Computed example of a mutant assay.
Amino acid sequence: MTHGTTPRWRTSRHSSNGASCVEVLEADRATYLRDTKQHGQGPVVHLDGPAWSAFLDEVARDAPSANGAVEVTATAEGGRTVREASSGAELHFRADEWAAFRAGVLDGEFSPGAA
């Protein structure tokens, strides 16, 4: 892990509670995403540095996925599905969860080194 500290999972300050959010961990020069609704038992999506930066840019612009590492698709209910290209791992977020995450992205909460 980086710099002798123990990394921890975190959510956006825009999330209303810690039980239904996009959760992010920066460790080993990579970033990991998971869904707090899975209580640490669900899939985890991995992005290396360049893919994470591209992903954040796409989320901020609400643009289609083009980073090659993950594909984000909108659900009929306004949420998002995040699918990792290499493993097929999928995360499913409700509209309010994704909106809180996106607000955090726009505020720079998840920029590299912002932890």
Rank of each mutant, 00 (worst) to 15 (best):
M1Y: 09
M1I: 06
T2D: 15
H3D: 15
T5G: 11
T5V: 13
P7I: 04
P7V: 06
S12V: 04
R13Y: 05
S16V: 09
G18E: 08
G18P: 02
C21V: 07
V22K: 04
L25E: 03
E26A: 14
A30S: 14
Y32W: 15
D35A: 05
T36S: 15
T36L: 04
T36Y: 08
Q38W: 11
Q38V: 01
H39L: 11
G40Y: 09
Q41I: 05
Q41M: 12
P43S: 14
V44F: 01
H46E: 12
L47R: 08
D48H: 13
D48K: 12
G49M: 04
G49R: 14
A51G: 02
A51I: 01
F55I: 02
L56R: 10
D57R: 14
V59Q: 06
A60V: 03
A60H: 11
R61Y: 00
R61W: 06
R61L: 14
D62V: 12
A63I: 07
S65N: 08
A69P: 00
A69W: 00
V70Q: 08
E71M: 08
E71K: 12
V72D: 00
T73C: 04
A74E: 13
A74N: 08
G78W: 12
G79K: 06
G79N: 09
G79C: 09
R80K: 14
T81P: 00
R83M: 08
E84A: 12
A85N: 09
S86G: 03
S86W: 08
S86T: 14
A89E: 09
E90H: 06
L91R: 02
L91F: 05
H92G: 08
H92P: 00
H92D: 12
F93Q: 03
A95R: 15
D96F: 14
D96Q: 12
D96N: 13
W98M: 01
W98H: 03
A99E: 14
A100I: 10
A100K: 12
A103R: 15
A103Y: 11
A103P: 05
V105T: 08
V105I: 10
L106N: 10
G108K: 07
F110Y: 10
P112G: 11
P112M: 10
A114L: 02
A114H: 11
A115G: 15
A115W: 15
